[in-house]
């Protein structure tokens, strides 16, 4: 029987929630093609996750000292070995750092097509037709690739699988390439426990590229203080050094779920939405009426944030007087 292969992502021993989304996507392809779903777990303790991987028909494991932590080169060697052993119809990976490392490399090595940022798909006639958000979320691309293929799934696009049975576990031999790697892990950094944790914030004012200048951050900081909110930034603001890294919202920052998320000059790239779409009330202000943030926001406005920030701050402080 042919299979659809996905990779179990773990973090500190636990399975990342994204894995369950990958299993749902893999199951969709499997059901359309009559294939089974196989989940690849890497490292000596990876098989422990099997009882939580009920959406898979089988769990494949590869154990080797080089796979005890995530090392891109090691994971690629192991994934390629699993593909060689099982010849899956599709390999389903996540659009995250691991997916960025592995998917294109694997596609090139196997000479198979790759569909990225997939949010929906149809599987028919030996091919996958996928929808993907591109151009910062402003456009939806419909693309097609013949099976076998690599599918890279956008986080949050597929529901998490909830099946609870324990699939059988099969150990695959460790490929010889794991003994001659050029890359090794030398250090890990976790967020400073003493730094502000915006994931705990009840209200957040987030500034994006529309704030234009570092000098304008101060007015946003004052507004946040008036609202009793934490100040946060989208990636360009952090990259410019205008706010510290611990205040970044999005894929490479923190995921937040405040009661109020006031997005000021944030365009709403998928990577940003991934970090804040669960907020209770999202208010977005951006002069670009086509900005993707308005797809996710509950309330929107298109006035200039550089005028709005002081005006709102003044009204909040003065009891409504302009």
């Amino acid at each position: 029987m042919t299979s659809v292969l996905t990779l179990i992502e773990t973090n500190g021993g636990g399975v990342q929630s994204l894995t369950y989304e990958l299993l749902t996507a893999a199951r969709q392809i499997a059901e359309a093609t009559g294939a089974s779903v196989e989940a690849l777990a890497l490292g000596s303790t990876a098989a422990n996750a099997a009882p939580t991987l009920g959406a898979a028909d089988a769990v494949l494991t590869i154990a080797h000292p080089a796979l005890e932590t995530y090392v891109p080169e090691a994971y690629l060697v192991a994934l390629e070995a699993a593909v060689a052993a099982r010849n899956p119809l599709a390999v389903v990976l996540a659009y995250d750092t691991i997916g960025l490392d592995l998917a294109s490399s694997l596609a090139n090595r196997l000479d198979r097509p790759l569909l990225a940022y997939v949010t929906r798909m149809k599987v028919a006639d030996g091919a996958i037709e996928a929808e993907s958000l591109v151009y910062g979320g402003k456009l939806l691309a419909v693309s097609n690739a013949a099976l076998p293929t690599i599918v890279v799934v956008a986080p949050g696009a597929f529901a998490e699988s909830t099946a609870t049975r324990t699939p059988p576990v099969t150990a695959l031999p460790a490929p010889i390439g794991l003994d001659s790697l050029r890359m090794r892990l030398v250090g890990e950094t976790v967020p400073d426990p003493n730094a502000v944790d915006i994931a705990q914030a009840d209200k957040i004012v987030c500034v994006g590229r529309g704030v234009k200048d570092k000098d304008n951050i101060e007015a946003a900081r004052e507004l946040a203080a008036t609202l009793g909110a934490e100040l946060a930034g989208s990636r360009p603001i952090i990259d410019n050094g205008w706010l510290p890294k611990e205040r970044q919202v999005g894929k490479s920052g923190r995921k937040v779920k405040p009661r109020l998320y006031l997005a000021l000059g944030v365009s709403g790239a998928p990577e940003h939405l991934e970090g804040m779409s669960g907020a209770e009330l999202i208010v977005a202000v951006n002069t670009d009426s086509e900005a993707p943030i308005f797809e996710t926001a509950h309330i929107g406005a298109t006035c200039d944030i550089l005028n709005l920030i002081p005006a709102l701050n003044k009204r909040l402080k003065s009891g409504g007087a302009a």
Binding site: L139, A145, T296
Partner: peptide
Amino acid sequence: ALAERLALRRPSRAGSATMIEGDAE
């Protein structure tokens, strides 16, 4: 590229924000 882009379109506006009109004030 081994895959083909069939079409581009703007995402559906189904979940759009309720817009507040007017100037900043």
